[in-house]
């Protein structure tokens, strides 16, 4: 078990320049910055159209100090496969290939290519940064938008369907490593990346990303809201290593703590959930409680 990283021993080298076009208080900026610290200089990135495209900059200025290939919306994973194939032909087995796609580019339009690459066992690391909607194009609903969220195209009734559980889909591909992380817990993200880079096949990361304009909160509360998602047991931090599931970081601590913050606090902190009724919130609370009863039992 490798030692947990803390703020003081987190590498100080930065791979992103300041002054990007990301929104004020963007959660992706935080996760991306720390993620790149874990990946290091010997990395090639693949990015489909998404918030990250804009964060990375408009021609001819790039904000990221790593090589990056912009690709069409559906093809992040296929492009990662292609770069890897070239590296193999050149005998390069050390450069990391990392795809960074949004939730839309992963759970919706990108799912086919990702599933194909995972099935082939293509050896790259894939990050789905999940701000729970097509935020770059103006907050439209995606497969991972949670139920009840008001978006630009679910304006009055909110999303009527459940959030797609993409880590579970990826775990079904029998990957060596699947992780659920959050921008509010960057050190957990860092450690998980470091722990899996040597593992074979596709490594899948799902990162919960608070988004001020998309979720409706004052940007200063971004980390607080990301933490609330975890402390309410609504969004869990975990890893699945060769099929074995375990909660990590703050989620792991909740097993001992046996006390979840009421999920109502999470919903009431964001204006996108303004139409959720008390009944709906109680139902969601019930489902969370059931899920955690399961975790508690497993822990015993």
């Amino acid at each position: 078990m490798q030692a947990k990283t803390n703020i003081l021993n987190l590498p100080t080298q930065e791979f992103v320049h300041p002054g990007t076009r990301a929104c004020t208080g963007c959660g992706l900026s935080i996760a991306y910055r720390v993620g790149l610290k874990a990946l290091g200089k010997d990395t090639i990135l693949v990015v489909p159209p998404s918030c990250l495209t804009v964060l990375q900059g408009l021609f001819p200025v790039a904000s990221t100090k790593l090589p990056c290939l912009n690709v069409t919306f559906a093809s992040t994973a296929a492009a990662a496969t292609g770069i890897l194939a070239t590296l193999k032909t050149k005998g390069n087995d050390h450069t990391t290939v990392a795809g960074w796609a949004g939730d839309g580019g992963t759970s919706d339009i990108g799912l086919q290519a990702l599933s194909g690459a995972a099935e082939r066992g293509d050896n790259f690391i894939y990050f789905c940064y999940d701000n729970e909607g097509y935020m770059n194009t103006g907050v439209q609903r995606s497969g991972t938008t949670p139920i009840g969220a008001v978006t630009a195209n679910t304006p009055f009734k909110g999303k009527l369907q459940q959030k797609k559980d993409v880590p579970a889909i990826m775990a079904a591909h029998k990957l060596s490593y699947v992780a659920a992380c959050s921008a509010a817990y960057p050190l957990d993200l860092y450690d998980k990346i470091k722990s899996c880079l040597h593992l074979p096949g596709t490594k899948y990361f799902h990162i919960h990303i608070p988004c001020p304009p998309g979720w409706g909160y004052d940007p200063r509360y971004g980390i607080k809201i990301g933490r609330l998602a975890v402390e309410t047991g609504y969004y869990d931090l975990y890893e699945i290593v060769n099929g074995e599931f375990r909660l990590t970081a703050a989620s792991e601590k909740l097993i001992e703590k046996r006390k979840l913050t009421p999920v109502r606090e999470y919903f009431r902190a964001q204006s996108r959930f303004r139409i959720l009724t008390d009944e709906q919130i109680n139902e969601i609370q019930r489902q969370i409680d059931m899920k955690w009863d399961g975790y508690y039992k497993k822990g015993e």
Partner: peptide, 8 residues
């Protein structure tokens, strides 16, 4: 490093 085919 270079960023290829971004928004132009």
């Amino acid at each position: 490093p270079a960023n290829l085919n971004t928004v132009t």
